[in-house]
Amino acid sequence: MSDYAAYPQRITRAQALAALDALGIPHTVTELRLDASTGADVTLYARNADGRAIAHGDRPVTVSLHIPFGEEATPDGTA
């Protein structure tokens, strides 16, 4: 069994945004789930060409996508 005391009690918003930045994911994300075997599942607010959030009635429209793991780049930038 894992030692749960080693996990943080909470994270700051700044830490969460830094994690998104490190992954190259925009801050319009409403939900992020990392799966160690398949990649990331992301839910974000849909935006129009002007960058404004799209709504249906009084609710924002969200889009879900899956970002699979890819090959890690080598030092020369190739996979």
Results as ranks from 00 to 15, higher is better:
residue 6 A to F: 00
residue 74 T to W: 07
residue 13 R to I: 05
residue 70 G to F: 06
residue 10 R to A: 08
residue 19 A to W: 05
residue 34 L to I: 14
residue 7 Y to C: 08
residue 76 D to S: 02
residue 31 E to L: 13
residue 58 D to P: 07
residue 40 A to I: 10
residue 6 A to T: 11
residue 52 R to A: 13
residue 25 I to Y: 06
residue 10 R to I: 02
residue 53 A to K: 11
residue 79 A to E: 08
residue 45 Y to K: 13
residue 34 L to S: 10
residue 61 V to C: 01
residue 77 G to W: 01
residue 39 G to E: 09
residue 1 M to S: 12
residue 12 T to G: 10
residue 75 P to R: 04
residue 16 A to F: 15
residue 1 M to R: 03
residue 52 R to T: 06
residue 49 A to Q: 12
residue 16 A to P: 04
residue 73 A to L: 08
residue 20 L to H: 08
residue 79 A to Y: 04
residue 21 D to C: 00
residue 65 L to G: 14
residue 62 T to I: 09
residue 39 G to N: 01
residue 16 A to G: 12
residue 45 Y to M: 15
residue 30 T to P: 03
residue 45 Y to R: 15
residue 60 P to G: 08
residue 47 R to C: 02
residue 30 T to D: 04
residue 72 E to V: 11
residue 74 T to A: 15
residue 73 A to M: 13
residue 71 E to I: 03
residue 61 V to F: 00
residue 53 A to T: 06
residue 33 R to T: 12
residue 58 D to C: 01
residue 30 T to C: 13
residue 17 L to P: 13
residue 79 A to T: 08
residue 76 D to F: 02
residue 79 A to P: 14
residue 22 A to Q: 07
residue 6 A to M: 09
residue 46 A to D: 14
residue 40 A to D: 03
residue 54 I to E: 12
residue 26 P to A: 10
residue 69 F to Q: 11
residue 70 G to R: 15
residue 56 H to L: 11
residue 59 R to E: 11
residue 78 T to P: 08
residue 25 I to K: 09
residue 64 S to V: 07
residue 69 F to M: 09
residue 73 A to G: 02
residue 65 L to W: 00
residue 35 D to F: 11
residue 62 T to P: 04
residue 15 Q to W: 07
residue 67 I to A: 04
residue 34 L to H: 14
residue 30 T to A: 05
residue 71 E to Q: 14
residue 71 E to W: 05
residue 47 R to G: 04
residue 46 A to Y: 00
residue 49 A to W: 12
residue 15 Q to V: 06
residue 2 S to E: 11
residue 28 T to K: 05
